[in-house]
Amino acid sequence: MRLPLKSGWLLVLPFLLLVGGLFLGPILNVLWISVTEPAPGFGNYAQLGSSDTLRRILWTTLRVCVMCTAFSVILGYSIAYAMVHATGPAQSRMLGLLLISFWISVLVRTFSWLMLLGRNGVVNSTLDALGIISAPIPFMRNELGVLIGMVHYMVPYAVLPIFAAMQSIDGRVVQASRSLGGSGAQTFWRIYLPMTKPGVVAASLVVFIINLGFYVIPAVLGGGKVLMVAEYISVQVLITLQWGTAAMLAAILLFGVLALMFLMSRFMKLSTVFGGART
């Protein structure tokens, strides 16, 4: 039996209302605050033109997020490649390890990195004891530290979509390329990589968007000098009470992500990226 379209919509209506009320409501409220506090108008947005600080914070955020996305996706690609080509139990073990890393809280990771790579951390003190370095290498409390922490957090998010894309590739395509005289490198660059592109794009989008909101890792591993948008928004909401500025920056993030999705949609079908029906 097939329900007519109308009653199907009725079934999802409560959830649509829930999403509308609990999700869109607050977002609209943020947009509203961004044009009404402290005075009606676009004064908050005009700050982007007049404030070097805001521009620098946005630029830091963009720079760190792009670098983190690139490293996470490259590492994620290699891990996914190894996982796809591993057999049975080995593959499950690898997947298990990957999923376990999702459960480790961001605070625990952050402090583990400090213990490992901090000024008196395991790595620095070992290198020092071996006489390789005379002064500790500054891995942490700077932009490098933020990148290490963020890439470590994001790699599993990059692996999963790429892994899914690789799994759906028919191995015979690769064999066909080889039997027609393609070298290993040619087969990878011209056959394998293009076929995994939806996975790579999905991974990049997911990683980049999650990165934009990072708060704890930059705050702690950056030593206060790597100020990203999320932390700045939190300070404006909680300490300086500049809610208009905070809402404006939140809106900029939102529009930035939407613009990114739009750009992507010009180049490829987003539904294939997110595992929708392939046409």
Binding site: D52, T53, R56, I57, T60, G224, K225, V226, L227, Y232, V235, I239, T240, L241, Q242
Partner: peptide, 14 residues
């Protein structure tokens, strides 16, 4: 003066 002081400070150290 919290807002002015904190934001000027953040601008200087970041």
């Amino acid at each position: 003066n919290t807002d002015a002081a904190v934001n000027a400070f953040l601008a200087a150290i970041s």
